[in-house]
Nucleic acid binder design. Structure first.
Length: 270
DNA sequence: CGGGCGGCCTGGAGGC
DNA sequence: TGCCTCCAGGCCGCCC
């Protein structure tokens, strides 16, 4: 599924297409996503004023003091178009004033569509415990050290825990740790401040590079216009078990951390 | 208490 | 062709 770069790419695409559009009608499928669909009353005949991202959530600011929130789970696609064919697993179809449609397609249904009042955004269950945005200037070695030194869990688990830092999922955690030459199993509290001074820029540059490439398309993910991303062609370790390390030619290894496949170079990453 | 794990789902790939 | 197992960009609740 989409991690931060994929969600960011979708948001940028939506900004070009659906700002100031009115939601004329909405239809939800009879299959539930992660949570019940919102009341139609809260979205029909509203205008989309702004589109932005928080963590891996896409927020559409409506002109009725509410936000329509979409999460893509593992397999969600959010597409905008004028003549979109109805497809299997289309779960939310919004018809906009210009006859464009905004469609959420999500085979595995781990995604989410909900509405939250603007005054409740920061206290809502979905958002209240979210950690720092990794591309914000407040994400520094000093600030992150306060978090990493408190835990013995593998550093990769800390990177993937949205209570600490958001948006970094399974691909970009492995890729960032490779770029910073840090072993994914290292206990978080063994990481020195000087190593975080490598890791934070590594995370930020991986995410930036992936955004520039339009995200990574493994199977499901596409931009809101249907285009695929191409950062997957630049993966150094993710999915590369048995291949040569691009730096030292050692064999890339795979392991499981908290149930998730994890890829690393046993020689480069200490 | 933090964090690992199983479960939530569907579908594609690969083995036989 | 089919059937079976394993795997997948995430997250939540349960349990230790």
């Amino acid at each position: 599924m989409p991690e931060l770069p994929e969600v960011e790419t979708i948001v940028r695409g939506l900004e070009q297409n659906i700002i100031n559009e009115t939601i004329i009608s909405a239809k939800f499928s009879n299959k539930q996503l992660r949570a019940p669909y919102p009341s139609l009353d809260l979205i029909i005949n509203t205008k989309i004023q702004k589109v932005f991202r928080r963590a891996k959530y896409i927020l559409l600011q409506l002109n009725n003091n509410h936000h329509l929130i979409v999460h893509l789970g593992m397999s969600g696609r959010l597409l905008v178009g004028t003549n979109l064919m109805k497809k299997k697993h289309d779960h939310a179809i919004l018809t906009l004033g210009s006859s464009k449609q905004l469609v959420l397609n999500d085979p595995r249904r781990f995604g989410l569509v909900t509405v939250i009042h603007k005054d409740n955004l920061n206290t809502a269950k979905l958002f209240k415990d979210l950690g720092i945005e990794p591309l914000s200037k407040d994400f520094t070695a000093q600030s992150f050290y306060k978090i990493t030194k408190r835990s013995r869990a593998p550093i990769k688990s800390i990177l993937m825990n949205a209570n600490h830092v958001v948006g970094v999922g399974n691909i970009y955690a492995s890729e960032s740790l490779f770029r910073a030459k840090i072993h994914p199993l290292r206990p978080s509290n063994s990481i020195k401040l000087s190593e975080l001074e490598e890791l934070i820029p590594a995370i930020q540059s991986v995410l930036d590079d992936a955004i520039k490439a339009g995200g990574s398309t493994l199977k499901d993910y596409v931009h809101s216009n249907g285009d695929v991303g191409y950062f997957q062609h630049y993966f150094k370790v993710y999915g590369k078990k048995g291949k040569d390390c691009p730096i030292c030619q050692s064999m890339i290894e795979a392991t499981q951390i908290a149930g998730r496949s994890t890829f690393f170079c046993p020689k480069c990453q200490k």
